[in-house]
Amino acid sequence: MTHVTKERLLEAGLAMLLENGYNHLGIQALLEATGTPKGSFYHHFRSKEDFALQVIDRYMEEVHHGLDLSLGNASLPPLERVRRFFELSQEKYRQEGYLGCLLGGVGQELSGISETFRRKIETCFAGIAVRVADCLEEARQQGDLPPDSDPRQMADLLVDCWEGAALRSRLRRDPGPLGAMLDFYFSAATK
């Protein structure tokens, strides 16, 4: 039973953190939205910070699931698999009203004031880039990228560009920046 309560809090918290940010995430509003007593919250989480860090972990489970689905799809060439991951992310953003990436939003809000969140979010981005780099290396080995390409550097750049496009998409509530960035990146990468 307590596992169900924790899951409900994390799911609701993910949506609320994405929409409102950390500073405007009210624990009381979360408790009311989930019908959870205050004591149950503190049974599962030491603090608001601990809760938000666990929400990020939950978000990363979803991200890694998307990476598994996309990058692990051996029926597609490596570059298509990488692009597919970002297209799936774009579709998720659309379903959420173009609120962007939770990591980007919380990172922009807290990285300048919280070393804990800065390190956590940078570690998450680095983990995504490593997985993308592995697939880009496969593309390089197959001749789909220039032989002197640096897949890790390319993956870092892709994640950086995506996060910028996700912010612009959130500001505009429009997918245009996401699609334009992907088109530009993949066109430039293969030259």
Results as ranks from 00 to 15, higher is better:
121 I>Q: 11
178 L>K: 00
39 G>S: 05
159 V>Q: 12
4 V>G: 04
69 L>Y: 04
173 R>G: 00
183 D>R: 14
15 A>Q: 13
77 P>R: 10
143 G>R: 00
177 P>L: 00
13 G>M: 02
13 G>S: 04
80 E>M: 10
25 L>K: 11
89 S>Y: 14
91 E>K: 14
114 S>A: 05
81 R>G: 11
130 V>N: 06
101 C>M: 01
85 F>C: 14
102 L>K: 10
62 E>N: 13
98 Y>Q: 03
91 E>Y: 03
29 A>S: 15
87 E>W: 09
73 N>Q: 14
20 N>P: 01
92 K>G: 07
108 Q>S: 09
55 V>Y: 04
117 F>V: 08
132 V>N: 08
7 E>W: 01
58 R>N: 05
162 W>C: 03
60 M>W: 04
175 P>E: 09
140 R>A: 07
65 H>P: 02
3 H>T: 14
175 P>Y: 04
59 Y>M: 05
159 V>D: 06
84 R>Y: 08
93 Y>R: 02
32 E>G: 06
159 V>K: 08
63 V>N: 10
184 F>G: 09
64 H>T: 05
57 D>A: 07
179 G>R: 15
181 M>E: 07
82 V>Q: 12
152 R>N: 09
70 S>A: 12
29 A>T: 11
183 D>S: 12
191 K>C: 01
72 G>H: 14
87 E>C: 13
179 G>E: 13
91 E>P: 03
187 S>N: 12
109 E>W: 12
59 Y>R: 14
169 S>Y: 00
166 A>Y: 00
138 E>M: 11
173 R>T: 00
42 Y>C: 09
60 M>S: 06
22 Y>C: 05
4 V>K: 10
64 H>C: 05
160 D>Y: 13
191 K>P: 07
174 D>M: 02
135 C>F: 04
110 L>R: 15
42 Y>E: 03
114 S>R: 07
160 D>I: 06
42 Y>L: 09
129 A>R: 13
179 G>Q: 13
142 Q>V: 01
90 Q>L: 15
112 G>E: 07
20 N>I: 01
25 L>Y: 05
189 A>M: 13
33 A>V: 03
153 Q>W: 05
40 S>H: 04
98 Y>C: 01
177 P>D: 00
169 S>G: 01
183 D>M: 04
185 Y>T: 02
171 L>A: 02
98 Y>K: 03
159 V>G: 10
67 L>W: 09
20 N>Q: 07
86 F>G: 10
7 E>S: 08
21 G>Y: 01
66 G>H: 13
163 E>C: 03
1 M>G: 12
169 S>I: 00
12 A>R: 11
175 P>Q: 07
116 T>G: 03
172 R>E: 00
43 H>L: 15
93 Y>M: 10
184 F>W: 07
17 L>K: 01
101 C>E: 02
128 I>P: 15
166 A>N: 00
128 I>S: 13
20 N>K: 14
23 N>V: 01
148 D>T: 03
154 M>K: 15
132 V>H: 07
8 R>E: 06
161 C>I: 03
71 L>F: 08
188 A>T: 11
21 G>F: 01
38 K>G: 14
131 R>H: 07
190 T>Q: 15
15 A>K: 14
24 H>Y: 02
83 R>K: 14
103 L>I: 11
82 V>E: 11
166 A>C: 00
36 T>V: 09
120 K>P: 07
151 P>H: 09
52 A>E: 08
8 R>A: 06
68 D>E: 12
156 D>N: 09
37 P>Y: 03
122 E>P: 08
177 P>Y: 00
80 E>Q: 11
